[in-house]
Design a binder for these strands. Structure first.
Lengths: 184, 184
DNA sequence: GTCTATAGCTCGATAGAC
DNA sequence: GTCTATCGAGCTATAGAC
């Protein structure tokens, strides 16, 4: 059984990622979580406290994610590229929510996202030993993530958007290109 | 002399990109534009009309941008990568603003962004003739843009964020890698 | 620990003077 | 064409019953 606290944070994330900050009211979050506004306020005394808790939970996931990028070059590169094309998992949802807070003026959110970006980059740089390949891997992953999540969000209204994404075979070719660069 | 209408749209963009949708009230936009709320409402009878006008202006810029990507493979790839690392120009600001509307539930904004994404991708695909290089160019550009704008937004609070961006030399190496792939 | 009720504020939009 | 004044809706947060 998930605690009420976690259910509320999940609902907050869901609202932030689906309808955005403007429509994410305490009422809406409480309704999604299945509690009353009073119940929500008991756990999180203000909207800011709710945002802080979300960012804190995100930071924990971020640490885990960066740790998982440790390994030899081939594993790290492949893992990062594949992670970047997955949408809908825990970290992805949290990322989108925190990113939305960041873009709407929440400085703690900006700091948390930047911290994760830096951890990823450092991990890839350390395992590959090449600044160029590290940057390319990071950029390709970022682009992949941007495209995947944007296409995923708009798929229902515009199905042909899927053409923007590389196929599985192309993704393999991208990974191979990156690893080939390391061998030169 | 810029028309009041354009000044209001500029102010709307500025507010959307700096403080976000939630804090972008009609009062705030009017204040930035240097008009009263009544004056704003004369030009744009509702907030939705304001958003529609912004998206329409963005769509115009988007068409121009996609047209400029026509050319031979080397020119197109270089142009797209360099465009992706520029921050603060007209199209970039408009993009950020419309993107923020999209992420907050505005369907027209989503459609406009997707349309531009598709135009870019089609132009790169046509000039390179290679689906793999087209996707890689597009992804690298997207990643570059994401990093550049995010780092740029947060630079004041976190100066060390600049390390996340590739140097000019690395950007050249990235372009060269893409063009080498075409020659194989 | 969760609820209802409501106070107090801010926003979008309207009305009407100039 | 631009302004001030103001209404009604919807928001966060508080108070207090259970």
């Amino acid at each position: 059984m998930t605690s009420a606290r976690e259910k509320i944070l999940d609902a907050y994330e869901e609202s932030l990622t689906t309808v955005g900050v403007a429509a994410t009211t305490l009422d809406a979050v409480a309704r999604i979580a299945g509690v009353s506004k009073g119940g929500l306020i008991y756990h999180f005394p203000s909207k800011e406290a709710l945002a802080d808790a979300l960012i804190e939970r995100f930071t924990g996931m971020a640490r885990t994610s960066a740790d998982q990028l440790q390994g030899d070059a081939a594993t790290t590169v492949r893992h990062f590229i594949e992670m970047s094309s997955s949408v809908g998992d825990e970290l992805d949802t949290a990322w989108l929510a925190v990113m939305n807070l960041s873009r709407n003026g929440n400085q703690s959110a900006t700091r948390a996202v930047l911290e994760l970006e830096r951890s990823w980059h450092d991990a890839i740089l350390e395992s590959t030993g090449s600044p160029l390949v590290a940057h390319m891997t990071k950029l390709l992953g970022d682009g992949l993530y941007h495209s995947t999540s944007f296409v995923s969000e708009s798929r229902e209204s515009l199905p042909e958007a899927a053409k923007l994404l590389p196929s599985d075979g192309e993704r393999e070719a991208i990974i191979r290109t990156l690893l080939d660069l390391l061998d030169e």
